[in-house]
């Protein structure tokens, strides 16, 4: 099989198109590149959707935590504590078995026992908690002069939030939020190792990489390939977030703009 045929056969294997059977012997480098790359579709799916949905929830939670009323503050604080204080790995397990039990009682929960939706829910809630903490920190450090200026113009309620508080919060939070996005993409690799089954061997990049490592008993090829894909993806995330950062700070003279400093860290 030539490399071109391999790509045609396996490029969309992870979402169920193409050859059902995975290669079982005589693994070529091309097969490993193609299948691991095909698995990246899942990582991108989880990462992008969780980021988009999580962003909206996180804004709400952060506003809740900054609210003086305890009825808004306490639930937000607990939400953040629970999801930041426990390992994501355990959250996946717990959620999977929770959905499994719920499915037994109410069949409506059955889509949530699949990785496609169930793991997405966990990732969304988890990233919302981390992001909310970042946004909350940014809300606390909004310069006093900004809000005072808004008050002086007679702005209240929604316009005050939309035109003054929210943009400033995003500007302050953006470098930390970029890091959070990178962690989130790294965290997507946990999905298929934590309870959620890979239906018909449709897994993410790490799932295929460990498949190859198990079959060939040689970790020195699939894992570096996976690492290469992840470095590429991290660079893309940094690029896109850098563009948004430039847009957020477009009113500043270019010399004063803070460049994004990326300090990728750890999983949760």
């Amino acid at each position: 099989m030539t490399c071109y045929e391999t790509i045609a056969t396996y490029a969309f294997r992870s979402i169920g198109y193409g050859e059902r059977l995975l290669p079982r012997s005589d693994f070529t480098l091309c097969q490993q590149f193609t299948l691991i790359g095909s698995g990246m579709i899942w990582n991108i799916y989880f990462g992008v959707l969780a980021l988009l949905i999580g962003f909206c929830i996180a804004t709400l939670v952060a506003m809740g935590k900054a609210n003086p009323s305890p009825y808004a503050r306490k639930p937000a604080e607990w939400f953040i504590f629970v999801f930041r204080g426990s390992p994501l790995f355990i959250q996946f397990f717990f959620a999977y078995f929770l959905f499994l039990s719920l499915k037994g009682v109410y069949p409506i929960f059955s889509p949530l026992t699949s990785a496609t939706f169930g793991a997405l829910v966990v990732l969304v809630l988890n990233t919302s908690a981390y992001t909310a903490e970042i946004f909350y920190g940014a809300l606390q450090s909004i310069p006093k002069g900004d809000t005072e200026a808004a008050d002086a113009y007679g702005m209240t309620g929604w316009p005050r939030f939309k035109r003054v508080i929210w943009p400033t919060m995003l500007r302050l939070a953006w470098p930390a939020y970029t890091n959070e996005a990178i962690f989130l993409f790294h965290a997507t690799t946990l999905v298929f190792f934590a309870g959620f089954p890979a239906f018909q061997q449709r897994g993410d990049a790490l799932y295929y990489a460990s498949y190859f490592a198990d079959k060939t008993f040689n970790p020195f090829i699939p894992y570096p390939i996976l690492a290469g894909y992840f470095i590429l993806m991290t660079l893309c995330v940094i690029g896109i977030f850098g563009l948004i950062n430039a847009r957020l700070n477009r009113h500043l003279p270019s010399a004063n703009r803070k460049r994004l400093r990326i300090r990728p860290q750890i999983i949760r």
Binding site: T189, L206, A209, P219, A227
Partner: peptide, 18 residues
């Protein structure tokens, strides 16, 4: 720091052993 650490966990155990 640039790579998901679960990859390292899976990688090092086999690599160190070998």
């Amino acid at each position: 720091r640039g790579i998901p650490d679960i990859v390292f966990f899976l990688f090092f155990v086999i690599a160190l052993d070998q």
